[in-house]
């Protein structure tokens, strides 16, 4: 399994029976492939579906059935369709147990920046603010560093924020970290990655408990 797939599979383990979950556009959407098929989970997509079944098989796409990222999907038995106001009532009203989102930067205080890089990328915020601010639990799924090797986990975000203090857990190709009032706690290491390597690749101090560190 690649380090990316191990990260996706690790995030999928936190999706438990009975949850209503929104998987953000891009990497988080792929977590769907690692949730056991018999796990009773309701996948929401903000364009108006609760009960995403999976990606449509090639040649079997329904022109009227997409997820918020534009991918053609199926609707699971028991699923429902609704308008955009109902879709965000579900989000803001506290019905989402978990959302997994991508990040440009994520900070030790739980701040998330994932929608704008001034002067470079400004295509609009979509549903990210409401997902980040109102899901009961927010996970961030990202490579530990950017393509130049710079840390994406920082003490404070430098980019404009999507939401303040919203993130609970960060899943990367190197580690799983939890946001706590006293800082970022390292809770798991990816197989083959050392504590020293994670510290080197992280732009914020890590709190590490004594004893053996679980791996994924």
């Amino acid at each position: 399994m690649s380090s990316k797939d191990r990260m996706l599979a690790r995030a999928a383990r936190d999706i438990t029976p009975g949850m209503t979950v929104n998987l953000g556009i891009g990497l988080p959407t792929q977590v769907m492939n690692f949730v056991p098929a018999d796990c009773p989970v309701c996948l929401h997509s903000e364009n108006g579906i609760a009960g995403v079944g999976g990606l449509a098989a090639p040649g079997h796409a329904n022109r009227n059935l997409i997820d918020a990222g534009g991918g053609y999907i199926t609707c699971a038995p028991g699923g429902s369709f609704f308008d955009s106001a109902v879709s965000f009532a579900l989000v803001r009203g506290g019905r989402l147990d978990l959302t997994l989102l991508g990040a440009f930067e994520v900070a030790a205080n739980g701040d998330l920046a994932n929608w704008i890089i001034p002067g470079k990328f400004a295509a609009g915020v979509g549903g990210a603010i409401e997902l980040a601010q109102k899901a009961r639990r927010v996970g961030v799924l990202t490579t530990h560093t950017d393509k130049h090797g710079n840390p994406k986990i920082l003490e404070r975000c430098t980019l404009p924020l999507t939401a303040v203090g919203c993130v609970h857990r960060i899943y990367t190709d190197m580690a799983v970290c939890d946001v706590h009032p006293d800082g970022l706690h390292l809770v798991e290491l990816a197989e083959g990655i050392t504590l020293a390597e994670v510290r080197e690749a992280t732009g914020a101090p890590l709190v590490v408990a004594d004893g053996p560190m679980p791996t994924f």
Partner: peptide, 22 residues
Amino acid sequence: AIRMMNAGEIEVEFVAQGILAE
């Protein structure tokens, strides 16, 4: 659309998706 926005050929107001709907 991004090019026209950056060139000032159109004004764009971005609204959070659910706030736009509401």
